[in-house]
Design a protein around this nucleic acid. Structure first.
Lengths: 233, 233
DNA sequence: TGACATGTCAAACAAATGTTTTAATTTCTT
DNA sequence: AAGAAATTAAAACATTTGTTTGACATGTCA
């Protein structure tokens, strides 16, 4: 009888091969994407046999799922959405922290970069591994930002303008990472790494807050929010 | 001697197979990307033999290049960057037209959709076919928008803030198309098709112009820190 | 008509890939 | 230490892929 196929291999603390495969898979998937990545290359970098992937993980797809889960967890552990921001802080401050963390999550050097790389590909051709990530991480993130935006605008989180403004902020955050090859070619003077994060965060929050404060008035659909002025003055 | 490999096959006007392969290849490349697309599927949809791709085009890669060139030409013929805008029009009006055309180019129904789909993939994993497109189309577009933005801001086109604002506008345009699978899942109420283009264009231009008009004054080359947000250092 | 270029087709080729198999080896338990 | 379980290793398997080959068909023009 084959225990592996039923319960998977034992998770010994000294299971080194499995860990190294996960590490190597992170690199390869981030560089080549799921389709172009090969288990042979993963095993080569892990110093393991070709059969190791199918033994320690069920198949390539399951391995990919674990890689995505792992890199996502690392990224959000190091860069939570609102690091050290008081719950009652001004929404403008929350927005700035949110944008900064977002950018850092994408431009951090080291293994965390994988998360951004893999996510970029998931946007274009999503895999099944995206579903759980969406529920666990992305939806709470979206709700959080929607709440911040609603507070700044003095509107309901379900308002259409709030949703569009969420898009406007998020789009600026993902753009620099997602389109970085195009940016580098069209604007070689634009640096795109962790050292630029603060400057980019300054611009994005400055640009967005200027827009949010002076947006042309649109009809409020179902405004159920009382304090209309979180204004500074 | 084989003339095909030297000069390519004759371009007879009644060369139907070649045209149908180009058409089918457009579909398949847009749906699956260069890597996942197979010449067998392309030939099947074109009703042609498997050898047809290598006969009429040199190989899969050359075919991809012609598809990209074709779809790009169609997209910009139907939606030029500034359709019917006078050269001396106000920059705000130019910006609105630019954004609208940008969105239409991505969300047009029909064969033009392919351009957006293929470009999305080129962002994540660029191929050699991107180079010529970049020089011919994208750089002029970028320069055009940079000029508009410089005029609105009253700054030099080479100013860093101008560049960052270009990014802020372009990012909002590409976002809805590039991240449409994510948007659909997180915000099912958000429609994403040609019927939404006008509304999206209104929001993007409104948001961006509000920001541009009320941007906090930045020095020419130094970043600024306005709010009392820094806690760590 | 007959040579010739051009296009089409079925088949095969060569390389790559995920996975499985089967045996050897290591590790753990008793 | 002995047997069982877990892990590793080499090889092979089954597909899929882009590409090529060689035969055949078709149209053109002397």
């Amino acid at each position: 009888m084959n225990l592996k196929s039923a319960n998977g291999p034992r998770r010994d603390p000294h299971d080194e091969t499995r860990r190294q495969i996960l590490e190597a898979a992170g690199e390869v998937f981030a560089e080549a994407g799921f389709g172009r990545a090969t288990v042979r290359e993963i095993c080569r970098r892990a110093g393991a046999n070709i059969a190791a992937v199918n033994y320690h993980f069920r198949d390539k797809e399951t391995l990919y799922g674990e890689v995505l889960r792992d890199s996502q967890r690392m990224a959000f552990e190091k860069y939570p959405p609102l690091p050290g921001v008081a719950a009652d802080a001004r929404p403008e401050e929350k927005l700035r922290a949110f944008v900064r963390s977002f950018l850092l999550r994408l431009f951090d050097n080291g293994p965390i970069t994988r998360f951004g790389r893999i996510m970029s590909r998931e946007m274009v051709e999503p895999t099944g591994a995206l579903d759980s990530l969406l529920k666990e991480r992305l939806r709470p993130m979206a709700d959080l930002l929607r709440g911040i935006m609603a507070e700044i605008l003095g509107r309901s989180p379900d308002d259409e303008q709030v949703r569009l403004c969420v898009f406007s902020v998020v789009s600026q955050c993902v753009f620099y990472h997602h389109c970085r090859t195009m940016i580098s070619r069209l604007f070689p003077e634009q640096r795109l790494d962790a050292t630029m994060v603060d400057r980019l965060a300054d611009h994005i929050t400055g640009f967005s807050l200027a827009a949010l404060k002076h947006l042309p008035e649109a009809k409020k659909s179902k405004s159920r929010r009382s304090p209309p002025a979180t204004r500074k003055h």
